[in-house]
């Protein structure tokens, strides 16, 4: 064990891991974290706290993570390179480790153009792969990016993202290999609706032996409405929503679409679970946290092993 992470413990014991996601509020209201956390507690091994997702200003990821931790959950702090240079990133890495947070997910970040402050200056001093390596060197070599030494290292279980559906497809596994070489311990993928394409990607992953070097959590998310499905299909870059998904949701009466969306999510979990090399799922019920207990139960993933009380 590299860290005290519950997620690492679950994965090392070869349990099928479950991570959830919690979006901090665009306000200073701590109650939001508590009310969302109660749907995740006991149902996930750890939960991601997003870092200004879609480039919209929200409560700081580390602060919301700490509030969630106080509710008895294990946080994964997401950290993007959009808003911080290498100085700020390393300061935050030290800070979250000192707060007893055990996991971090390294991301380049959604471009500022997509958010509510599109005229902001993007930082991008380093990219996600360089960030992974920087945190790994801090943890394993006790060195800052400058090469300076530190006395107490940040013991973080290091995550990174992978998008099997972005272009060019042939290169996506090469980029995953680069993240693994840089030091990623676990990977959370883009939301999967095209299971066949994901399976094809996993085949490439296995051919390179990467599933033995890194724990891969398959990204899944329930669809709430036809509008959401269409939006993801046409407007969200890097998402692959096949026509068959739209047809399945269209095939039920309007008031049952969200039920069907939940069933579809459970079906996808069962399908990705059969794919060799998939170590768990990352369930992103964004602004719909209340359905997490039902989905995890229906997928037969309860009780969670060794979830901290």
């Amino acid at each position: 064990m590299k860290t005290r992470s519950n997620l690492e413990r679950v994965l090392e014991a070869r349990h099928f891991a479950v991570t959830g996601e919690l979006g901090p509020p665009p306000s200073a209201d701590p109650e939001v974290i508590g009310s969302k956390a109660k749907f995740l507690k006991g149902n996930v091994d750890a939960f991601n706290v997003t870092d200004g997702q879609t480039a919209v200003v929200r409560m700081a990821s580390w602060a919301a993570a700490l509030l969630g931790k106080e509710e008895g959950l294990e946080p994964i702090v997401q950290m993007t390179c959009r808003d911080r240079n290498r100085i700020a990133l390393q300061m935050d890495v030290l800070g979250i480790a000192a707060l007893g947070i055990n996991n971090m997910l390294c991301l380049t970040g959604d471009h500022q153009k997509f958010g509510n402050h599109p005229t902001a200056k993007g930082v991008y001093d380093v990219d996600s792969i360089q960030l992974v390596k920087m945190v790994r060197d801090m943890r394993d070599e006790k060195k800052f990016q400058s090469g300076d030494d530190m006395s107490v290292e940040p013991c973080l279980f290091i995550g990174a993202a992978a998008n099997p559906f972005a272009d060019p497809f042939e290169f996506r596994v090469t980029r995953l290999a680069k993240k693994v070489a840089a030091g990623a311990d676990f990977i959370q993928t883009q939301i999967i609706y095209n299971v066949d394409k994901f399976a094809e990607w996993m085949k490439d992953v296995r051919e390179k032996g990467l599933h033995e070097k890194v724990k891969i959590l398959a990204g899944v998310a329930p669809i709430k409405s036809m509008g959401a499905a269409r939006y993801m299909k046409t407007r969200v870059p890097g998402m692959d929503v096949p026509d068959s998904v739209l047809e399945r949701l269209q095939g039920v009466p309007k008031e049952q679409v969200s039920r069907e969306g939940i069933k579809l999510c459970v079906d996808i979990i069962e399908q990705v679970r059969q794919i060799e090399g998939v170590a768990g799922i990352h369930l992103m019920a964004i602004e719909w946290e209340e359905v997490v207990p039902e989905i995890i139960a229906a997928a037969g993933l309860l009780p969670r092993p060794g979830v901290s009380a």
Partner: peptide, 8 residues
């Protein structure tokens, strides 16, 4: 170390 996930 590109391309990022937004290349389509």
């Amino acid at each position: 170390n590109g391309p990022c996930g937004g290349s389509q």
